[in-house]
Write a protein that binds this DNA or RNA. Structure first.
Lengths: 247, 247
DNA sequence: GCAATAGTGTCTTTTAGACAATATAAA
DNA sequence: TTTATATTGTCTAAAAGACACTATTGC
């Protein structure tokens, strides 16, 4: 009886379909009070020397792409945030034969969201492997920089995904601590959409149905003390709501 | 100066990160008057012998995943539909190390929509490579069959994608000829959502804004002759509509 | 008091959805 | 005429959005 490998060669001829190196690229987002940031590395070598690139790495033999993305994120952030509340999801796969001039690398891009208190950005681990990742404002980078490889395309896709997803889910809360005020949440929307002030009253009304009031109040800000909310679990990534059978 | 290959080995060590076979899997949808179908192949060999699987194949050296998916679709349909009006988009990438027991195969799943006149399903090419693909009703397969590999998961994801996307785009029209009646379009929605009758009046009102009346009428059906419509190009996959700055 | 924010109220517009009514064709 | 469909109209409910108002805090 043929071994598994031999069986497989009936379908798979490595000459015609050569294996590829499988990588992950990460678009890691975090917000300050008013700005959306992403983590970038500055390339030190050929190709695209000196250009900005997304952090990433290769997929190991015993892990899938999501596990590799998680591992890379933990390396960037020094384990503290990666395991806990960071959100990672697959974005898309980039497989153009020419996307890396050195050899064929197929990359599964991921979107990662790090929670912040809205003031300071998470600390990035300085220089484990290649270069140190650092935060840059997303909209400024998109307007002014040409990224290495197809990373500009990936960054745009990630921003589209995030901007679209917060319209119908509470994914925006993944960029905040477990408890947050409506003011903080509103600032996240403004940062992601790069838009002007959203009306506080309407925002409150639209969100409160999906939020759980903890009863506690935030301390220390300017105006009246704001209530601290938690996301009801079922709203973090809700099942799709289909229109009723009469439409 | 180091060659590209040598440079690259600074980052990439094939021992630690072995290359993978890159494949595509296809979820090909088409509708009859009332039912959503997908194309399946029956597995003839190990593993999952006898089980239903999705059509697919490996990615060649000179093509990206989308090109491979298009090529595979053309092989299934015999070129006639693949090049022209068929819609293909990337769905997600499946990379579990154990997803194929023979060796590591990473698969980029794609969603394909074939246009039909609403009566007969497109003809599938009988047996080019492994097995002949044939149409089966999607909801029946999901309810009753266990698919090979992780193809059940892929099929579910494809259905979710399609069902969700037709809520806010006119992607459903990709399952119809270039000109169609509102009745045909409504049947597509009912087939995809596996739901009862949608109200004809409300459906008309909701759709007409995105459709172009050709002025011509469909012939031969029971009741009053229905107008033939075309999709306004900007509605086939429209730019995201973000709420106004006041929300 | 002043400035800034939190939260509520109100009004308008839009959209979804239920359902009735009329029109047009085939049998 | 009967039957089945197309299309328009009407009404209600829900949601989005604009905007005013009051309450509560720090300074």
């Amino acid at each position: 009886m043929a071994t598994d490998e031999e069986q497989f060669l009936q379908d798979y001829t490595p000459g015609e379909y050569p294996p590829v190196a499988l990588a992950v690229d990460l678009v890691v987002f975090a917000v300050t009070e008013s700005t959306l940031y992403a983590a970038f590395v500055r390339r030190g070598g050929h190709p695209f020397k000196g250009a900005l690139a997304l952090p990433g790495g290769f997929v190991g033999a015993d892990e899938d792409a999501l596990a590799a993305a998680r591992r890379e994120l933990e390396e960037e952030t020094g384990l503290e945030l990666g395991g806990h509340r960071a959100h990672i999801e697959q974005l898309a796969t980039y497989s153009s034969p020419q996307r890396d001039p050195r050899m064929r690398v197929v990359s599964v891009a991921h979107l990662a969201l790090l929670p912040t208190d809205g003031r300071a950005l998470p600390v990035l681990n300085p220089g484990t492997d290649s270069a140190a990742a650092h935060w840059l404002p997303v909209y400024e980078v998109l307007a002014g920089e040409t990224l290495a490889f197809d990373h500009g395309e990936i960054l745009t896709a990630a921003l589209e995904r995030l901007a679209g997803k917060i319209e119908y889910t509470l994914t925006a809360a993944r960029l905040l601590p477990g408890e947050f005020t409506l003011y903080q949440l509103r600032r996240v929307y403004q940062a992601v959409w790069n838009t002007g002030r959203l009306d506080a009253g309407n925002f409150t009304r639209k969100m409160t149905g999906a939020l759980q009031d903890t009863g506690r109040k935030a301390i220390g800000d300017k105006g009246a003390p704001a209530a601290l909310f938690t996301v009801r679990e079922e709203y973090l990534s809700p099942p799709m709501i289909r229109p009723a059978a009469n439409s």
